[in-house]
Write a protein that binds this DNA or RNA. Sequence first.
DNA 1: CAGAATCCGACGAGATACTG
DNA 2: CAGTATCTCGTCGGATTCTG
Lengths: 135, 135
Amino acid sequence: MELGHTDVTGTVQEGAREGNHNPKRCDAINSVLNRVGDKWSVLLVMSLAQGPCRFNELKRRVDGISQRMLTLTLRGLERDGLVKRTVYATIPPRVDYELTPLGHSLREPIEALGHWAFDHYECIVAARAEFDAKQ
Amino acid sequence: MELGHTDVTGTVQEGAREGNHNPKRCDAINSVLNRVGDKWSVLLVMSLAQGPCRFNELKRRVDGISQRMLTLTLRGLERDGLVKRTVYATIPPRVDYELTPLGHSLREPIEALGHWAFDHYECIVAARAEFDAKQ
DNA sequence: CAGAATCCGACGAGATACTG
DNA sequence: CAGTATCTCGTCGGATTCTG
C-alpha cells in the first residue's frame, strides 16, 4: 500500500521520490482505514457515543448485526483501545462496553464523514442516476 | 442498518423512538461508508488530489492495486460523481481521470481521518500490545 | 494504452447449536 | 446473559488472457 509521494493526510512528503514513502504513516493509515472501513465498527462507536451499553442492548441497537460479528467487532475495538469492556460478576452475567477517551476522539472524524455523507447524498444519487442512464 | 435514536452524524433525532429512524439518512451514511470503507477508493481519491492522471500512471502510484480493481474502483467513483473520466481519441488511447468538485470535497473528511490515524497510531499500537500480552 | 472477460481461491460473515 | 465453536455459502479480489 504505497502512494508514491502523497499520503492520506494530504501532506506531501519532504524528500519524497519514487519508492520513498513513510512506512509508519502507511501502516497507521491502513490500520485505521480498515477499522473505519468496517461498517460494524463505525456503527458500534456511534452507538456507544452516549455512554456504556450492555452486549444484548448493543445487539438490539445495531440492527442487523449477528452475535458473532458483534463479539468479533467489540474485541477488535477493545484491542485497539477504543472500547473498554467491564465484566460484573453477577448472575446473570453483565458486561458493559463503553468508549475510551481514544474511542471518543474518533467520533470527530467519523461524524465529519457522516455530515459529508448527508450533505452530499442528493448529489451522489443524482450522479448515479445520470451515469446509469447513459448505459 | 439502524441505529435506534442515534446516527453517524452524531446528532440525536428529534422524535426518535424504537424503530423510528431516518431511512434516507441511513442510506446516505451507508453508501458513503461503503465507499470510504473501500481502501482502493480512498487511495485513489488521494492519488488524484493534485490533478488529473492517466490509467497506468494511477496503477503505478497506487502500488499493489490490480488492473481489475483499478478499473472497477474508478467506475464506482465515476458513477458516484466523484471522478471525471476523459477519453482522448488518440493512438495509443489516453484516458485521464480527475476529481470532480464533489470528489475534492470528500478529501476534507478523509484527511481528517488520516490525521487522526497518524496522531493516535502510537496509542493504538500500544493498546494492541497490551491487549495481546494479556492473552 | 486502457481496458473487458474468465477462472478460481481465500476469506468474511450469517445461521445454528452449545456453555458457564 | 454473554459469549464460544462449527459449518457453510457467497462475494471479493488476484492472476491471467484477450482486444480495439
